[in-house]
Nucleic acid binder design. Structure first.
Lengths: 205, 205
DNA sequence: GTCTATACATTGATAGAC
DNA sequence: GTCTATCAATGTATAGAC
């Protein structure tokens, strides 16, 4: 995503992504994007008519990135526990690579939900199949019976929230110790998996 | 928090809170705050010298509100399970009452972490005692052994994140059905408590 | 396609009358 | 204390030369 800086359009897209993700739609300045791309403001408007249009282009790419194909993992023939671990691994790997995504997406979704809704429809994301598979695992007694929607929200919360609240964790929990904070985030894959599996596995512990 | 509209200063504070929490520091407009307070812009600057000063006043009050005295709950003599349930109850009740807080605080903390840091120091919030109590509960075998910091983040994530991501949940999970969304949030107290207790209670289930 | 210069709109902040 | 009118700064967008 940070390659292909050859032509001007890609340079703009790359610069815009960095600035928008860091500052948000309202905080970003066209001048800053131009500077980061090594061009001037006028050229931004030449390639993308307005700041809104440029933002839409960036936001659309990012939403596509942040909603990975969890469906594929769930469709496999593996045990449910394996699927859960795989989803947590996949999602946390993605977030470790793009730690700014949660704060950015939450900010923009709350600013203008309709924008997000259109993109979800465009990307054709539907959670229904996932809930079916969870229900089946419960029917088989592979996991305890509970509300699948809450289970999904539990897991996503534990994966995503710490990144959105990273400054708080960094300061309140680790007294601004960067290494300690980093270690904490490195541990979360393991910790979240253990916690979730213990909560949903029937008996025999 | 929505009372005392008698004098002008309180009217301003109340209006500013509404606008800032909804739009954030960058999205809020002094004109909109003035309109909501039923006065004009000049008067805002008469009472509070600048937009920054006005925002600081609001943000400080909100941080004080959002970091309730969890410490007190943990200091009691009850069983650890009771403490966990009490914390989840307390926090989710607070958030049901102020559902916009998570998105607002996350947005502002990521925009300017230092502002948040100063307030945390001012309010004198320290998590150390809580971790000690968790450690003791583990030593007694009351809950399974795990990293206390991750446990705290797990619980707070499940409580706070759904509110910050409410538009996403509303649309993706419930197809914009307001009643279904509301029901989901009403259920979370119970669901989070069950999930957490099952994950941390030793054996005997 | 890319630049400089500038128009136009928005908005935070102030001056001054009452 | 409260208002109207206005300033000054910032930022998006465009015009026009090269």
């Amino acid at each position: 995503m940070n390659t292909k800086k050859d032509n001007t359009e890609d340079k703009i897209l790359d610069a815009a992504k960095n600035v928008f993700v860091k500052k948000g739609m309202e905080g970003a300045r066209m001048q800053e994007i131009a500077d980061e791309a090594g061009i001037n403001k006028a050229l931004l408007h030449y390639y993308f008519r307005s700041k809104d249009k440029l933002f839409d282009a960036i936001f659309s790419k990012i939403i596509g990135l942040a909603f990975p194909k969890i469906g594929e993992i769930f469709q496999s023939d593996q045990a449910f526990a394996w699927k859960v671990e795989q989803v947590i691994d996949t999602y946390l790997s993605l977030l470790m690579k793009h730690p700014y995504l949660p704060a950015f997406i939450l900010k923009e979704v709350n600013r203008d939900p309709s924008m997000f809704f259109k993109l979800v429809l465009k990307h054709g994301f539907s959670p229904a199949p996932i809930f079916e598979i969870i229900e089946e695992a419960m029917d088989r007694g592979e996991i305890i019976r509970m509300n699948p929607q809450h289970l999904v929200v539990h897991v996503l919360s534990m994966c995503i929230f710490p990144f959105a609240a990273k400054p708080i964790i960094h300061f309140v929990l680790f007294d601004e110790d960067k290494q300690a904070t980093q270690a904490f985030f490195d541990e979360r894959k393991q910790e979240v998996k253990q916690f979730v599996l213990r909560a949903i596995t029937p008996e025999l512990k």
